Computed example of a mutant assay.
Amino acid sequence: MNAETGKTALITGASSGIGQELAKLFAQDGYNLVLVGRSEDKLDRLSEVFKSNYGTQQILVINKDLSEEDAAQDIYNQVQEAGITVNVLVNDAGASTYGLFATETNWEREKQIIHLNVLTTTLLTKLFLKDMVARNEGRILQLASLVAVTPFPLMAVYAATKAYIWNLTQSLINEIKDSNVTMTALMPNATATNFFREAGAPKLTVEDTMDDPAMVAKDAYKALMKGEAKVIPGGVSNKAQEVMAYVSPQETLAAMMRRLLTPKDESGQEKTPVWTIVGVAAAVVAGIALVSAFNNMDPVDKARYRYKAGKLKSKATGLIDEAGDALSEAKDTAADKWSDLGQMAGRAIANVFG
């Protein structure tokens, strides 16, 4: 489309997965590129493809391990020396380890991951955001995750780093709200990349229902260009997981997420639990419809709605308490209990329309 000829996007983790798909979208839109990653050969090949297929004018490849000390400062210095103005920063690079934190994972590797996911991402954000604010122009996309708002046993350090990125991003959005600079948090579900293999994980239950990285990148790109504060790519079931994270007991969430990270030969199941799609997704759809309807109500109907919503809140609180009690009485049946609860919540929300 060549809509943004002359502008430059810097993408970390650009050699594969979501980062590569995002780089392709920027190239299609006429951006010049700064591609950052550990595989210089892959990035060079990608550069040739973009120049050939999309006529990309300028591509700077930076071969860098972002878990190294001063990686962010070195990238910034190289960009400055090349005389490049970065209009869009995409902090896509990230990594994880897999296993029990106390006995199975390696601290040196976890320290590298914290450096990559937190320190390098934060400094890149600070360096380029300062320039963007000075110009009063720019966009930043931060790779958070749906696990930024949930426990994630067996990948605990990864989830903690993503919670940091999520919180940092939302705080900075408030700080720059009076400027023309925007930031967007990308919160994907499990995506079909090499993420789990690089983390040292065996084949996991969660890998039965992974999203396409091209779809994730497309949704992320649209949200970034609109200046949205966050984006959860995919359908309603992914968005339902965020809602569930806010209303569910943490112990229940942790047990469910642990189940998804169980090796397939140990899980005793072949597919992701149905509660994700059926129970809570229905509640979310009803909730979205409620918000839309509420915005079009007259004052009298709004007052009536608030009364019904208050009753619904009491019901929902009771249902969540019920789930917590059931969990303490019989933890082994928690997932089944929450499936019933999700359906009950969906019916309760639907009753507001009655």
Rank of each mutant, 00 (worst) to 15 (best):
V243R: 09
L100I: 10
M210E: 12
A348C: 11
S52C: 03
A282E: 15
Y221L: 04
A316C: 10
D208M: 09
K230Q: 11
N295V: 12
D65R: 06
G354F: 06
R347K: 15
T272S: 08
Y98H: 02
P249R: 04
R139M: 10
D325V: 10
N351T: 12
P151M: 04
L312C: 11
S179C: 06
I173D: 02
I140N: 04
L100E: 13
V247D: 04
Q78E: 07
W275G: 01
P213W: 05
Q250G: 06
R197C: 04
A281G: 08
S96Y: 05
L312W: 10
V149S: 07
T184I: 05
V285N: 07
Y246M: 12
S328I: 12
G235P: 02
A254E: 09
T56Y: 07
R306D: 12
V157A: 01
V236L: 12
K337A: 10
A71V: 02
A214F: 08
L127E: 09
L154C: 09
A335G: 08
T85D: 13
N167Y: 10
S67D: 01
A282R: 09
V231H: 04
A93S: 11
A102T: 14
A245Q: 03
Q28T: 07
A293S: 15
R304D: 10
G346M: 06
S179Q: 07
M210F: 05
A14C: 06
I62K: 08
R304G: 01
E40H: 13
F353Y: 15
A199C: 10
K218Q: 15
L89E: 03
V36S: 00
S15R: 00
T317F: 13
D321L: 09
G138Q: 06
F294I: 02
N167C: 09
S52W: 07
T272G: 05
V86W: 01
L46G: 05
K226F: 07
Q80L: 11
V118A: 03
S237E: 12
A9V: 06
A201F: 03
E48Y: 11
T97M: 09
A163D: 05
Q142E: 06
K64N: 12
